[in-house]
Design a protein around this nucleic acid. Sequence first.
DNA 1: GACCCGCATTGATTTAAATCAACCAACCCT
DNA 2: AGGGTTGGTTGATTTAAATCAATGCGGGTC
Lengths: 248, 248
Amino acid sequence: MLKEKASIIPHECGDCPIRHRAVCARCEADELEVLDQIKYYRSYESGQTLIWSGDHMDFVGSVVSGIATLTQTMEDGRTQMVGLLLPSDFVGRPGRNSAAYDVVAVTDMVMCCFRKKPFEEMMARTPHIAQRLLEMTLDELDAAREWMLVLGRKTAREKIASLMAIIARRDATLNMNGTRGPLVFDLPLTREAMADYLGLTLETVSRQVSALKKDGVIELEGKRRVTVPDFNRLLEEAGDDSDGGMLI
Amino acid sequence: MLKEKASIIPHECGDCPIRHRAVCARCEADELEVLDQIKYYRSYESGQTLIWSGDHMDFVGSVVSGIATLTQTMEDGRTQMVGLLLPSDFVGRPGRNSAAYDVVAVTDMVMCCFRKKPFEEMMARTPHIAQRLLEMTLDELDAAREWMLVLGRKTAREKIASLMAIIARRDATLNMNGTRGPLVFDLPLTREAMADYLGLTLETVSRQVSALKKDGVIELEGKRRVTVPDFNRLLEEAGDDSDGGMLI
DNA sequence: GACCCGCATTGATTTAAATCAACCAACCCT
DNA sequence: AGGGTTGGTTGATTTAAATCAATGCGGGTC
Protein backbone atom coordinates (compact mmCIF):
# COMPACT_ATOMS: atom_id res chain seq x y z
CA MET A 1 0.00 0.00 0.00
CA LEU A 2 2.83 2.37 0.78
CA LYS A 3 0.46 5.14 1.78
CA GLU A 4 2.28 8.10 3.13
CA LYS A 5 1.02 8.74 6.59
CA ALA A 6 -1.76 11.29 6.25
CA SER A 7 -0.36 14.52 7.53
CA ILE A 8 -2.57 15.53 10.42
CA ILE A 9 -2.11 19.21 10.80
CA PRO A 10 -3.84 20.37 13.93
CA HIS A 11 -5.05 23.69 12.68
CA GLU A 12 -5.93 26.79 14.45
CA CYS A 13 -9.61 27.20 13.59
CA GLY A 14 -8.61 30.54 12.12
CA ASP A 15 -6.84 29.01 9.15
CA CYS A 16 -9.01 25.91 8.80
CA PRO A 17 -9.82 25.16 5.15
CA ILE A 18 -13.50 24.56 5.90
CA ARG A 19 -13.82 27.47 8.28
CA HIS A 20 -16.36 29.36 6.16
CA ARG A 21 -18.61 26.45 5.19
CA ALA A 22 -18.74 24.10 8.18
CA VAL A 23 -20.98 24.10 11.21
CA CYS A 24 -18.72 26.71 12.80
CA ALA A 25 -19.05 29.11 9.85
CA ARG A 26 -21.03 31.71 11.77
CA CYS A 27 -19.01 31.63 14.96
CA GLU A 28 -17.31 34.73 16.33
CA ALA A 29 -13.70 34.73 17.47
CA ASP A 30 -14.58 34.04 21.08
CA GLU A 31 -16.84 31.17 20.16
CA LEU A 32 -14.15 29.69 17.96
CA GLU A 33 -11.79 29.75 20.88
CA VAL A 34 -14.14 27.54 22.86
CA LEU A 35 -14.46 25.13 19.94
CA ASP A 36 -10.70 25.13 19.60
CA GLN A 37 -10.52 23.83 23.16
CA ILE A 38 -12.77 20.84 22.67
CA LYS A 39 -12.01 19.84 19.08
CA TYR A 40 -9.62 17.10 18.08
CA TYR A 41 -8.59 15.64 14.74
CA ARG A 42 -8.91 12.09 13.54
CA SER A 43 -7.70 10.68 10.27
CA TYR A 44 -8.92 7.64 8.40
CA GLU A 45 -7.65 5.62 5.50
CA SER A 46 -9.45 5.05 2.26
CA GLY A 47 -11.80 2.11 2.62
CA GLN A 48 -12.07 2.35 6.37
CA THR A 49 -15.50 2.28 7.97
CA LEU A 50 -15.70 5.26 10.31
CA ILE A 51 -19.02 4.33 11.79
CA TRP A 52 -21.25 1.28 11.67
CA SER A 53 -24.99 1.70 11.59
CA GLY A 54 -26.34 1.09 15.07
CA ASP A 55 -23.03 1.93 16.74
CA HIS A 56 -22.99 4.07 19.79
CA MET A 57 -21.80 7.53 18.75
CA ASP A 58 -19.99 9.59 21.31
CA PHE A 59 -18.75 12.22 18.90
CA VAL A 60 -19.89 14.44 16.07
CA GLY A 61 -17.67 16.22 13.60
CA SER A 62 -16.93 17.86 10.29
CA VAL A 63 -15.14 16.46 7.27
CA VAL A 64 -11.97 18.52 6.87
CA SER A 65 -10.59 16.74 3.82
CA GLY A 66 -11.44 13.61 1.86
CA ILE A 67 -14.74 12.00 0.99
CA ALA A 68 -17.00 9.49 2.71
CA THR A 69 -20.25 7.79 1.87
CA LEU A 70 -23.37 7.32 3.96
CA THR A 71 -25.02 3.99 3.20
CA GLN A 72 -27.92 1.87 4.32
CA THR A 73 -27.86 -1.89 3.94
CA MET A 74 -30.67 -4.44 3.98
CA GLU A 75 -30.21 -7.85 5.58
CA ASP A 76 -29.79 -9.53 2.21
CA GLY A 77 -26.98 -7.19 1.29
CA ARG A 78 -28.71 -4.71 -1.00
CA THR A 79 -27.21 -1.34 -0.26
CA GLN A 80 -28.22 2.20 -1.02
CA MET A 81 -26.02 5.20 -0.62
CA VAL A 82 -28.02 7.99 1.02
CA GLY A 83 -25.43 10.70 1.08
CA LEU A 84 -21.96 11.75 0.08
CA LEU A 85 -19.90 13.52 2.72
CA LEU A 86 -17.58 16.18 1.39
CA PRO A 87 -15.27 18.63 3.10
CA SER A 88 -17.28 20.82 5.51
CA ASP A 89 -20.15 18.34 5.80
CA PHE A 90 -21.30 17.44 9.28
CA VAL A 91 -21.42 13.91 10.66
CA GLY A 92 -23.61 12.80 13.51
CA ARG A 93 -26.83 13.96 14.96
CA PRO A 94 -27.04 15.96 18.15
CA GLY A 95 -29.64 14.46 20.42
CA ARG A 96 -29.24 10.91 19.21
CA ASN A 97 -26.66 8.47 20.33
CA SER A 98 -26.66 5.65 17.84
CA ALA A 99 -25.68 5.95 14.21
CA ALA A 100 -28.36 5.45 11.59
CA TYR A 101 -26.03 4.70 8.68
CA ASP A 102 -22.67 3.24 7.82
CA VAL A 103 -20.07 5.90 7.12
CA VAL A 104 -17.22 4.72 4.91
CA ALA A 105 -14.17 6.65 3.75
CA VAL A 106 -13.68 6.49 -0.01
CA THR A 107 -10.46 8.45 0.15
CA ASP A 108 -8.09 9.17 2.99
CA MET A 109 -9.80 11.61 5.30
CA VAL A 110 -9.33 14.01 8.14
CA MET A 111 -12.21 14.84 10.46
CA CYS A 112 -12.54 17.57 13.04
CA CYS A 113 -14.37 15.95 15.95
CA PHE A 114 -16.12 17.02 19.12
CA ARG A 115 -17.26 14.81 21.92
CA LYS A 116 -21.00 14.84 21.72
CA LYS A 117 -21.80 16.00 25.22
CA PRO A 118 -19.69 19.15 25.20
CA PHE A 119 -20.79 19.94 21.69
CA GLU A 120 -24.45 19.70 22.63
CA GLU A 121 -23.89 21.96 25.61
CA MET A 122 -22.06 24.42 23.44
CA MET A 123 -24.87 24.29 20.90
CA ALA A 124 -27.44 25.14 23.55
CA ARG A 125 -25.39 28.19 24.50
CA THR A 126 -24.37 29.25 20.99
CA PRO A 127 -27.21 30.07 18.62
CA HIS A 128 -24.73 30.61 15.79
CA ILE A 129 -23.93 26.92 15.75
CA ALA A 130 -27.53 25.77 15.90
CA GLN A 131 -28.47 28.25 13.17
CA ARG A 132 -25.75 27.07 10.86
CA LEU A 133 -26.57 23.42 11.54
CA LEU A 134 -30.21 24.06 10.71
CA GLU A 135 -29.23 25.68 7.46
CA MET A 136 -26.93 22.80 6.54
CA THR A 137 -29.58 20.25 7.45
CA LEU A 138 -32.16 22.02 5.29
CA ASP A 139 -29.71 21.92 2.39
CA GLU A 140 -29.13 18.23 2.92
CA LEU A 141 -32.86 17.66 3.00
CA ASP A 142 -33.21 19.42 -0.33
CA ALA A 143 -30.39 17.31 -1.75
CA ALA A 144 -32.01 14.12 -0.45
CA ARG A 145 -35.30 15.09 -2.04
CA GLU A 146 -33.67 15.90 -5.33
CA TRP A 147 -32.11 12.48 -5.15
CA MET A 148 -35.52 10.89 -4.55
CA LEU A 149 -36.58 12.16 -7.96
CA VAL A 150 -33.45 10.69 -9.50
CA LEU A 151 -33.99 7.32 -7.85
CA GLY A 152 -37.72 7.12 -8.40
CA ARG A 153 -38.21 8.46 -11.88
CA LYS A 154 -35.07 8.74 -13.94
CA THR A 155 -33.72 6.23 -16.45
CA ALA A 156 -30.30 4.69 -16.03
CA ARG A 157 -28.77 7.12 -18.51
CA GLU A 158 -30.37 10.10 -16.79
CA LYS A 159 -29.16 8.83 -13.44
CA ILE A 160 -25.57 8.68 -14.62
CA ALA A 161 -25.84 12.12 -16.18
CA SER A 162 -27.36 13.47 -12.95
CA LEU A 163 -24.52 12.09 -10.90
CA MET A 164 -21.93 13.55 -13.25
CA ALA A 165 -23.69 16.90 -13.11
CA ILE A 166 -23.75 16.93 -9.32
CA ILE A 167 -20.10 16.03 -9.01
CA ALA A 168 -19.09 18.51 -11.70
CA ARG A 169 -21.03 21.31 -10.04
CA ARG A 170 -19.74 20.53 -6.61
CA ASP A 171 -16.22 20.35 -7.91
CA ALA A 172 -16.60 23.67 -9.69
CA THR A 173 -17.80 25.43 -6.52
CA LEU A 174 -15.14 23.86 -4.29
CA ASN A 175 -12.36 24.85 -6.64
CA MET A 176 -13.91 28.18 -7.52
CA ASN A 177 -13.68 27.39 -11.21
CA GLY A 178 -15.88 29.50 -13.37
CA THR A 179 -18.44 27.59 -15.35
CA ARG A 180 -17.14 28.71 -18.72
CA GLY A 181 -15.32 26.19 -20.85
CA PRO A 182 -15.11 22.44 -20.41
CA LEU A 183 -15.30 21.06 -16.88
CA VAL A 184 -12.76 18.46 -15.81
CA PHE A 185 -12.98 16.42 -12.63
CA ASP A 186 -12.17 13.07 -11.10
CA LEU A 187 -14.91 10.65 -10.14
CA PRO A 188 -14.39 9.98 -6.46
CA LEU A 189 -16.41 6.75 -6.66
CA THR A 190 -15.89 3.28 -8.07
CA ARG A 191 -18.48 1.96 -10.50
CA GLU A 192 -19.91 -0.11 -7.69
CA ALA A 193 -20.25 2.91 -5.40
CA MET A 194 -21.90 4.81 -8.23
CA ALA A 195 -24.31 1.91 -8.63
CA ASP A 196 -25.11 2.03 -4.91
CA TYR A 197 -25.77 5.74 -5.15
CA LEU A 198 -27.97 5.43 -8.21
CA GLY A 199 -29.92 2.30 -7.38
CA LEU A 200 -28.43 0.42 -10.34
CA THR A 201 -26.09 -2.51 -10.87
CA LEU A 202 -22.46 -1.83 -11.62
CA GLU A 203 -22.84 -3.39 -15.07
CA THR A 204 -25.56 -0.93 -15.97
CA VAL A 205 -23.42 1.92 -14.69
CA SER A 206 -20.55 0.79 -16.85
CA ARG A 207 -22.72 0.47 -19.93
CA GLN A 208 -24.31 3.88 -19.52
CA VAL A 209 -21.02 5.60 -18.87
CA SER A 210 -19.74 4.05 -22.09
CA ALA A 211 -22.87 5.17 -23.91
CA LEU A 212 -22.52 8.78 -22.72
CA LYS A 213 -18.91 8.69 -23.84
CA LYS A 214 -19.79 7.25 -27.24
CA ASP A 215 -22.38 10.00 -27.68
CA GLY A 216 -19.88 12.69 -26.82
CA VAL A 217 -21.64 13.90 -23.68
CA ILE A 218 -18.54 13.15 -21.64
CA GLU A 219 -14.93 12.29 -22.39
CA LEU A 220 -12.91 9.86 -20.33
CA GLU A 221 -9.23 9.76 -19.59
CA GLY A 222 -8.63 6.49 -17.83
CA LYS A 223 -11.61 5.35 -15.81
CA ARG A 224 -11.91 8.19 -13.40
CA ARG A 225 -11.04 11.50 -15.08
CA VAL A 226 -14.04 13.03 -16.78
CA THR A 227 -14.28 15.99 -19.13
CA VAL A 228 -17.63 17.61 -19.81
CA PRO A 229 -17.38 19.66 -23.00
CA ASP A 230 -20.88 21.11 -22.71
CA PHE A 231 -22.48 21.32 -19.30
CA ASN A 232 -25.92 22.22 -20.63
CA ARG A 233 -25.87 19.14 -22.82
CA LEU A 234 -25.15 17.08 -19.71
CA LEU A 235 -28.04 18.69 -17.87
CA GLU A 236 -30.35 17.89 -20.75
CA GLU A 237 -29.25 14.29 -20.61
CA ALA A 238 -29.95 14.36 -16.89
CA GLY A 239 -33.50 15.45 -17.59
CA ASP A 240 -33.03 18.75 -15.74
CA ASP A 241 -33.95 22.19 -16.99
CA SER A 242 -30.77 23.41 -18.54
CA ASP A 243 -30.84 26.58 -16.46
CA GLY A 244 -32.01 26.05 -12.90
CA GLY A 245 -28.82 24.51 -11.67
CA MET A 246 -26.19 27.22 -11.76
CA LEU A 247 -27.09 28.98 -8.52
CA ILE A 248 -24.75 29.65 -5.59
CA MET B 1 -69.35 18.52 -4.58
CA LEU B 2 -71.52 19.92 -1.82
CA LYS B 3 -68.61 20.18 0.59
CA GLU B 4 -69.62 21.63 3.88
CA LYS B 5 -67.53 24.72 4.46
CA ALA B 6 -64.50 23.58 6.46
CA SER B 7 -65.02 24.87 9.96
CA ILE B 8 -62.10 27.17 10.65
CA ILE B 9 -61.76 27.32 14.36
CA PRO B 10 -59.25 29.97 15.31
CA HIS B 11 -57.71 28.30 18.32
CA GLU B 12 -55.94 29.63 21.26
CA CYS B 13 -52.49 28.06 20.92
CA GLY B 14 -53.11 26.58 24.34
CA ASP B 15 -55.68 24.12 23.07
CA CYS B 16 -54.24 23.57 19.61
CA PRO B 17 -54.31 19.91 18.58
CA ILE B 18 -50.73 20.01 17.31
CA ARG B 19 -49.39 22.06 20.18
CA HIS B 20 -47.04 19.36 21.45
CA ARG B 21 -45.60 18.21 18.13
CA ALA B 22 -45.31 21.27 15.91
CA VAL B 23 -42.57 23.82 15.57
CA CYS B 24 -43.95 25.61 18.62
CA ALA B 25 -43.75 22.51 20.80
CA ARG B 26 -40.98 23.83 23.03
CA CYS B 27 -42.33 27.34 23.48
CA GLU B 28 -43.10 28.78 26.88
CA ALA B 29 -46.36 30.56 27.64
CA ASP B 30 -44.92 34.00 26.89
CA GLU B 31 -43.46 32.86 23.61
CA LEU B 32 -46.78 31.32 22.64
CA GLU B 33 -48.45 34.60 23.25
CA VAL B 34 -46.23 36.27 20.69
CA LEU B 35 -46.93 33.53 18.17
CA ASP B 36 -50.62 33.89 18.91
CA GLN B 37 -50.34 37.50 17.78
CA ILE B 38 -48.83 36.80 14.40
CA LYS B 39 -50.44 33.53 13.44
CA TYR B 40 -53.44 33.19 11.17
CA TYR B 41 -55.36 30.23 9.82
CA ARG B 42 -55.95 29.25 6.25
CA SER B 43 -58.01 26.37 4.98
CA TYR B 44 -57.77 24.52 1.71
CA GLU B 45 -59.94 22.06 -0.13
CA SER B 46 -58.97 18.59 -1.15
CA GLY B 47 -57.16 18.72 -4.49
CA GLN B 48 -56.13 22.32 -4.17
CA THR B 49 -52.52 23.26 -4.86
CA LEU B 50 -51.33 25.30 -1.88
CA ILE B 51 -48.00 26.20 -3.40
CA TRP B 52 -46.43 25.88 -6.84
CA SER B 53 -42.78 25.05 -7.15
CA GLY B 54 -40.91 28.26 -7.91
CA ASP B 55 -43.61 30.46 -6.37
CA HIS B 56 -42.63 33.30 -4.16
CA MET B 57 -43.34 32.25 -0.57
CA ASP B 58 -44.23 34.93 1.91
CA PHE B 59 -45.38 32.64 4.65
CA VAL B 60 -44.46 29.49 6.48
CA GLY B 61 -46.74 27.36 8.58
CA SER B 62 -47.80 24.14 10.21
CA VAL B 63 -50.37 21.62 9.10
CA VAL B 64 -53.12 21.67 11.72
CA SER B 65 -55.39 19.08 10.13
CA GLY B 66 -55.53 17.21 6.85
CA ILE B 67 -52.82 15.86 4.58
CA ALA B 68 -50.79 17.30 1.74
CA THR B 69 -48.13 16.00 -0.60
CA LEU B 70 -44.80 17.49 -1.59
CA THR B 71 -43.99 16.68 -5.20
CA GLN B 72 -41.37 17.38 -7.83
CA THR B 73 -42.21 17.28 -11.51
CA MET B 74 -39.97 16.96 -14.56
CA GLU B 75 -40.72 18.87 -17.78
CA ASP B 76 -42.10 15.76 -19.43
CA GLY B 77 -44.55 15.23 -16.61
CA ARG B 78 -42.88 12.49 -14.62
CA THR B 79 -43.56 13.25 -10.98
CA GLN B 80 -42.08 12.07 -7.74
CA MET B 81 -43.54 12.67 -4.35
CA VAL B 82 -40.78 13.69 -1.97
CA GLY B 83 -42.75 14.04 1.21
CA LEU B 84 -46.08 13.63 2.89
CA LEU B 85 -47.24 16.48 5.12
CA LEU B 86 -49.23 15.41 8.15
CA PRO B 87 -50.66 17.36 11.05
CA SER B 88 -47.86 19.18 12.90
CA ASP B 89 -45.50 19.10 9.90
CA PHE B 90 -43.88 22.36 8.92
CA VAL B 91 -44.14 23.94 5.48
CA GLY B 92 -41.67 26.39 4.05
CA ARG B 93 -38.06 27.14 4.60
CA PRO B 94 -36.87 30.09 6.63
CA GLY B 95 -34.18 31.95 4.74
CA ARG B 96 -35.46 31.08 1.31
CA ASN B 97 -38.20 32.83 -0.54
CA SER B 98 -39.20 30.60 -3.39
CA ALA B 99 -40.81 27.21 -3.03
CA ALA B 100 -38.83 24.17 -4.14
CA TYR B 101 -41.79 21.81 -4.51
CA ASP B 102 -45.46 21.69 -5.32
CA VAL B 103 -47.62 21.31 -2.24
CA VAL B 104 -51.01 19.76 -2.91
CA ALA B 105 -53.81 19.06 -0.45
CA VAL B 106 -55.06 15.48 -0.65
CA THR B 107 -57.77 16.09 1.92
CA ASP B 108 -59.36 19.27 3.19
CA MET B 109 -56.80 21.03 5.33
CA VAL B 110 -56.25 23.73 7.87
CA MET B 111 -52.89 25.40 8.20
CA CYS B 112 -51.54 27.67 10.90
CA CYS B 113 -49.51 30.29 9.06
CA PHE B 114 -47.00 32.99 9.87
CA ARG B 115 -45.75 35.68 7.58
CA LYS B 116 -42.18 34.78 6.86
CA LYS B 117 -40.52 38.00 7.96
CA PRO B 118 -41.99 38.14 11.48
CA PHE B 119 -41.47 34.43 11.90
CA GLU B 120 -37.80 34.68 10.99
CA GLU B 121 -37.35 37.55 13.41
CA MET B 122 -39.08 35.58 16.10
CA MET B 123 -36.89 32.58 15.33
CA ALA B 124 -33.75 34.63 15.75
CA ARG B 125 -34.95 35.72 19.19
CA THR B 126 -36.44 32.41 20.29
CA PRO B 127 -33.99 29.50 20.44
CA HIS B 128 -36.83 27.16 21.37
CA ILE B 129 -38.28 27.52 17.90
CA ALA B 130 -35.01 27.07 16.07
CA GLN B 131 -34.18 24.06 18.22
CA ARG B 132 -37.47 22.39 17.52
CA LEU B 133 -37.22 23.16 13.81
CA LEU B 134 -33.76 21.61 13.69
CA GLU B 135 -35.05 18.49 15.36
CA MET B 136 -37.98 18.25 12.96
CA THR B 137 -35.72 18.81 9.96
CA LEU B 138 -33.34 16.09 11.11
CA ASP B 139 -36.29 13.72 11.41
CA GLU B 140 -37.41 14.61 7.92
CA LEU B 141 -33.92 14.03 6.62
CA ASP B 142 -33.91 10.58 8.17
CA ALA B 143 -37.29 9.87 6.62
CA ALA B 144 -36.08 11.06 3.21
CA ARG B 145 -33.04 8.82 3.46
CA GLU B 146 -35.10 5.85 4.47
CA TRP B 147 -37.20 6.56 1.43
CA MET B 148 -34.12 6.64 -0.77
CA LEU B 149 -33.52 3.01 0.14
CA VAL B 150 -37.12 2.19 -0.72
CA LEU B 151 -36.89 3.94 -4.08
CA GLY B 152 -33.45 2.71 -5.03
CA ARG B 153 -33.41 -0.88 -3.94
CA LYS B 154 -36.80 -2.31 -3.12
CA THR B 155 -39.06 -4.35 -5.38
CA ALA B 156 -42.56 -3.19 -6.21
CA ARG B 157 -44.07 -5.50 -3.61
CA GLU B 158 -41.63 -4.34 -0.95
CA LYS B 159 -42.38 -0.73 -1.84
CA ILE B 160 -46.10 -1.21 -1.32
CA ALA B 161 -45.50 -3.03 1.95
CA SER B 162 -43.15 -0.26 3.07
CA LEU B 163 -45.76 2.39 2.36
CA MET B 164 -48.44 0.47 4.23
CA ALA B 165 -46.09 0.04 7.16
CA ILE B 166 -45.27 3.73 7.30
CA ILE B 167 -48.90 4.77 7.15
CA ALA B 168 -49.92 2.15 9.68
CA ARG B 169 -47.23 3.21 12.11
CA ARG B 170 -47.92 6.88 11.73
CA ASP B 171 -51.61 6.27 12.20
CA ALA B 172 -50.97 4.22 15.32
CA THR B 173 -48.87 6.96 16.90
CA LEU B 174 -51.27 9.76 15.95
CA ASN B 175 -54.24 7.93 17.38
CA MET B 176 -52.33 6.52 20.33
CA ASN B 177 -53.42 3.02 19.43
CA GLY B 178 -51.38 0.32 21.02
CA THR B 179 -49.64 -1.95 18.56
CA ARG B 180 -51.33 -5.10 19.81
CA GLY B 181 -53.95 -6.67 17.62
CA PRO B 182 -54.74 -5.91 14.01
CA LEU B 183 -54.14 -2.39 12.75
CA VAL B 184 -56.85 -0.68 10.74
CA PHE B 185 -56.37 2.53 8.81
CA ASP B 186 -57.48 4.43 5.74
CA LEU B 187 -55.12 5.04 2.86
CA PRO B 188 -55.00 8.79 2.41
CA LEU B 189 -53.72 8.43 -1.15
CA THR B 190 -55.14 7.39 -4.49
CA ARG B 191 -53.37 4.63 -6.39
CA GLU B 192 -51.82 7.27 -8.59
CA ALA B 193 -50.48 9.24 -5.63
CA MET B 194 -49.10 6.01 -4.17
CA ALA B 195 -47.38 5.37 -7.51
CA ASP B 196 -45.87 8.86 -7.40
CA TYR B 197 -44.59 8.24 -3.92
CA LEU B 198 -43.13 4.85 -4.76
CA GLY B 199 -41.67 5.52 -8.18
CA LEU B 200 -44.04 3.04 -9.83
CA THR B 201 -46.95 3.16 -12.25
CA LEU B 202 -50.45 3.07 -10.90
CA GLU B 203 -51.06 -0.28 -12.61
CA THR B 204 -48.16 -1.85 -10.77
CA VAL B 205 -49.43 -0.41 -7.50
CA SER B 206 -52.83 -1.89 -8.13
CA ARG B 207 -51.40 -5.30 -8.96
CA GLN B 208 -49.15 -5.44 -5.93
CA VAL B 209 -51.89 -4.30 -3.58
CA SER B 210 -54.05 -7.09 -4.97
CA ALA B 211 -51.20 -9.56 -4.54
CA LEU B 212 -50.62 -8.59 -0.89
CA LYS B 213 -54.34 -8.99 -0.30
CA LYS B 214 -54.43 -12.39 -2.00
CA ASP B 215 -51.50 -13.50 0.16
CA GLY B 216 -53.25 -12.39 3.33
CA VAL B 217 -50.70 -9.72 4.26
CA ILE B 218 -53.42 -7.09 4.21
CA GLU B 219 -57.20 -7.07 4.06
CA LEU B 220 -59.20 -4.51 2.13
CA GLU B 221 -62.61 -3.07 2.79
CA GLY B 222 -63.45 -1.00 -0.23
CA LYS B 223 -60.39 0.47 -1.90
CA ARG B 224 -59.11 2.59 0.92
CA ARG B 225 -59.66 0.88 4.27
CA VAL B 226 -56.82 -1.48 5.13
CA THR B 227 -56.49 -4.03 7.91
CA VAL B 228 -53.10 -5.45 8.82
CA PRO B 229 -53.60 -8.66 10.76
CA ASP B 230 -49.90 -9.14 11.52
CA PHE B 231 -47.65 -6.11 11.51
CA ASN B 232 -44.44 -8.13 11.66
CA ARG B 233 -45.48 -10.04 8.58
CA LEU B 234 -45.96 -6.71 6.82
CA LEU B 235 -42.50 -5.57 7.90
CA GLU B 236 -40.99 -8.77 6.54
CA GLU B 237 -42.70 -8.16 3.23
CA ALA B 238 -41.27 -4.65 3.29
CA GLY B 239 -37.79 -6.10 3.64
CA ASP B 240 -37.27 -4.43 7.04
CA ASP B 241 -36.01 -6.08 10.18
CA SER B 242 -39.16 -7.11 11.97
CA ASP B 243 -38.08 -5.32 15.12
CA GLY B 244 -36.33 -2.00 14.51
CA GLY B 245 -39.44 -0.08 13.67
CA MET B 246 -41.50 0.16 16.82
CA LEU B 247 -39.63 2.99 18.50
CA ILE B 248 -41.11 6.24 19.78
C1' DG C 1 -83.13 4.16 -14.63
C1' DA C 2 -79.46 5.54 -17.90
C1' DC C 3 -75.31 8.01 -18.39
C1' DC C 4 -71.06 9.81 -16.84
C1' DC C 5 -66.93 10.39 -14.32
C1' DG C 6 -63.05 9.48 -11.66
C1' DC C 7 -60.76 5.80 -9.73
C1' DA C 8 -59.32 1.08 -9.87
C1' DT C 9 -58.49 -3.55 -11.67
C1' DT C 10 -56.92 -6.97 -14.89
C1' DG C 11 -54.86 -8.77 -19.13
C1' DA C 12 -51.43 -8.86 -23.14
C1' DT C 13 -47.19 -7.26 -24.75
C1' DT C 14 -42.90 -4.70 -24.71
C1' DT C 15 -38.78 -3.02 -22.74
C1' DA C 16 -35.16 -1.35 -19.62
C1' DA C 17 -32.36 -3.04 -16.45
C1' DA C 18 -30.88 -7.16 -13.79
C1' DT C 19 -28.56 -11.27 -13.92
C1' DC C 20 -25.28 -14.60 -15.43
C1' DA C 21 -20.90 -15.04 -17.54
C1' DA C 22 -16.58 -14.09 -19.89
C1' DC C 23 -12.92 -11.35 -20.37
C1' DC C 24 -9.65 -7.18 -19.87
C1' DA C 25 -6.09 -4.15 -17.99
C1' DA C 26 -3.68 -2.05 -14.27
C1' DC C 27 -1.27 -2.66 -10.51
C1' DC C 28 1.08 -5.02 -6.91
C1' DC C 29 3.89 -8.52 -5.01
C1' DT C 30 7.02 -11.69 -4.76
C1' DA D 1 8.48 -12.61 -15.82
C1' DG D 2 4.44 -14.83 -13.62
C1' DG D 3 0.27 -14.99 -10.82
C1' DG D 4 -3.04 -12.78 -8.10
C1' DT D 5 -6.21 -9.14 -7.07
C1' DT D 6 -9.15 -5.30 -7.84
C1' DG D 7 -11.98 -2.66 -10.66
C1' DG D 8 -13.98 -2.33 -15.14
C1' DT D 9 -16.06 -3.69 -19.68
C1' DT D 10 -18.94 -6.26 -22.82
C1' DG D 11 -22.14 -9.88 -24.35
C1' DA D 12 -26.27 -13.16 -23.93
C1' DT D 13 -30.35 -14.05 -21.54
C1' DT D 14 -33.95 -13.38 -18.19
C1' DT D 15 -37.20 -10.79 -15.65
C1' DA D 16 -39.73 -7.21 -13.21
C1' DA D 17 -42.11 -3.46 -14.22
C1' DA D 18 -43.76 -0.28 -17.87
C1' DT D 19 -46.82 0.34 -21.43
C1' DC D 20 -50.88 -0.32 -24.11
C1' DA D 21 -55.60 -1.56 -23.79
C1' DA D 22 -60.03 -3.09 -22.02
C1' DT D 23 -63.14 -3.48 -18.47
C1' DG D 24 -65.31 -2.75 -13.69
C1' DC D 25 -67.49 -0.20 -10.24
C1' DG D 26 -69.48 3.16 -7.00
C1' DG D 27 -71.41 7.71 -6.62
C1' DG D 28 -73.32 11.68 -8.40
C1' DT D 29 -76.45 14.01 -11.90
C1' DC D 30 -79.77 14.74 -15.38
